[in-house]
Design a protein around this nucleic acid. Structure first.
Lengths: 333, 333
DNA sequence: CCGATTCACTGAAGCGATTCACTGATGCGG
DNA sequence: CCGCATCAGTGAATCGCTTCAGTGAATCGG
């Protein structure tokens, strides 16, 4: 046990001030002590270079000050942005985010969730790969759990921030319809890579309402695969006049395919995306896409998890509404 | 103190097996005990649903199992990739990464470094905003510190992974020179946003060697600012035939400016970047840029920090060589 | 002026592991 | 058959802080 850098303990501060360790503990947290004593303690602590030992504190108090953040796959830029935002928001509230990455594997996701519980994080924010896993219910009994994107099975979670995907679909389809598109291909990711989009159903409903002929196609994971799919789609004689991609990453595949085939966006084909990846505005042409207010999602999730931890009231369910970021990749057919 | 989910302790396992807590502790870690006892303990532990309490363990043993990762600014996609990689690499070695984000503020960087030390992480990987801060030396005395990108002041760090920026400059300039460019603008980021590039000096040396007329310009932070700078540069009557940007994000600004001005890349102007941001291959045209082997950097950093923690031998200094990713944004003048 | 509160603080008991210094066995060479 | 390691396991101390129950003094309403 290498003991580099011995640090002052609370006992030494107690000795220095002539108080009991308990009094020092209280004073440092500003409870149950007079202003004067607090000041005296703070001074002595500063002089001795005392800093509370978070691990000892965690053991004694039963709270670690850490919130787990379990991401489905951090390859995803959108999830990266979310993780960065949550990390900052927690830091601003004097807590740490312990970020774990399931790398797209639902089994690993559960294993990591278990590790996080054993690690005694105070709460957990999860963007579940598999919202139906039975383990979530068990987990939510041990600590506050907040899900982002999907409701967890059984509704045992302490909170959730969900997306109004129906609205997202409506925004995109109405936009394309308004431009005059009537034959649209909808490319959706496979289940494993992205939270469920029950909105698929909604696509058909909205298409019918608007009088659009929509064909829904599942795109395999990976840029190369998406490109290949798009290539086939664009080569077909009866190619649609617009493509609505249920994830910006799929749209990137479409871009690649159009470049190969020498087609122009939006001249030959309009492309709309979903999720507004940070680089989507940099493409040429910049991608029209459905945008979520990440800050809002971050703060809702953090508020809920901290509320549950501190046993203060909070809103259990937040539904985020998207907006459509209209850029240059869509135009009249 | 809400006590949800009481869990079994080592004492209960001891009682169940008729051993002392100490014996159980040893058995669980597979030391100083017979195979037979270990098996018996493991079985009892499983039956009771016992899981070691990491916080208690950390307090008693003095090691937390966590490695701090202090990033200069997680807005930067390159640093995001690095963080994701390091997080995964540590997880694969049964450790957690505690990722903190200085958000570009050198003072906050030091404050967070201090917090990480007080948090008793076992080691620290830092991509320093301010490698000259005196605090690094103090920190390195308390725990193993590994820097990525820049050497820390005084060379007290236990290890470092640095970039061969001279080589990067040479690669880019030779490429442009080979295509026939003789008048090149070099756009470098301000010091605060990116690790120091002492390579600026090297730019002049290499330019001279190759017979290139290079003008070095400092670009302010932010896409809009970079775009503005590029606009001015491209409008000038004596505009250079190529731009070498010392960060892909600056190149994005140049792209935006060319689009505005109706210029063609690489027809009217060649653009080369630095760092190969993940989206740079998606731009049109895909950006020619200097690429670093992130995996290599990740593993070097992780090897060093874990080596120092476990007091095993390791290589103190790793120099990463870049390669040039030649794509479609550069061509003959 | 009294009993009840409130206030500031103390002492001691944990929190749940690890680790050090020992203690009996057991093994083994000579 | 002795003396010396070696091995498996024990007890108790410890890590540094929080928290509970309690104590004496000051405060207060009536």
């Amino acid at each position: 046990m290498p003991q580099r850098g011995k640090r002052a303990t609370i006992r030494e501060v107690a000795k220095a001030t002539g108080l009991s360790p308990a009094a020092v503990s209280y004073a440092l947290r500003g409870v149950q002590t007079s202003e004067e004593t607090q000041e005296r303690v703070r001074r002595a602590a500063a002089e001795l270079g005392y800093e509370a030992h978070p691990i000892a504190r965690a053991l004694a108090s039963g709270r670690s000050g850490m919130v787990g953040l379990l991401c489905g796959s951090l390859e995803d830029y959108w999830q990266q942005s979310l993780a960065v935002g949550i990390g900052r928001a927690l830091l601003a509230r004097d807590r740490y985010a312990l970020i774990l990455d399931a790398a797209g594997d639902p089994e690993r996701e559960i294993a990591l969730a278990r590790q996080l519980r054993d690690q005694r994080v105070d709460g957990l924010i999860v963007q579940p790969l598999d919202p139906a896993a039975p383990f979530w219910a068990e987990l939510a009994e041990a600590l506050p759990v907040v899900s982002i994107g999907d409701s967890l099975r059984g509704g045992h979670a302490q909170g959730e921030v969900v997306f109004d995907n129906r609205r997202g679909v409506t925004l995109a389809l109405e936009h394309l319809h308004g431009l005059g598109h009537r034959r649209i291909a909808v490319l959706t990711p496979t289940r494993a890579s992205t939270p469920d989009r029950p909105a698929d159903v909604h696509v058909h409903a909205e298409a019918e309402r608007l009088g659009i002929e929509a064909s829904v196609i599942t795109a395999p994971q990976g840029l190369a695969e998406a490109t290949e799919l798009a290539r086939a789609l664009l080569r077909a004689p009866d190619r649609p006049s617009a493509v609505f991609c249920f994830s910006d990453s799929i749209a990137y595949g479409v871009y690649a395919a159009t470049r190969e085939l020498g087609l122009d966006i939006p001249g030959d084909i309009s492309v709309a995306g979903y999720d507004n990846y940070p680089m989507s505005s940099l493409l040429s042409p910049p991608l029209t896409t459905v945008d979520w207010d990440i800050d809002n999602i971050v703060h809702a999730a953090v508020r809920v998890v901290l509320g549950a931890i501190d046993e203060k009231p909070y809103r259990r369910r937040t539904v985020t509404a998207p907006t459509l970021e209209v850029r240059a990749s869509t135009g009249p057919p």
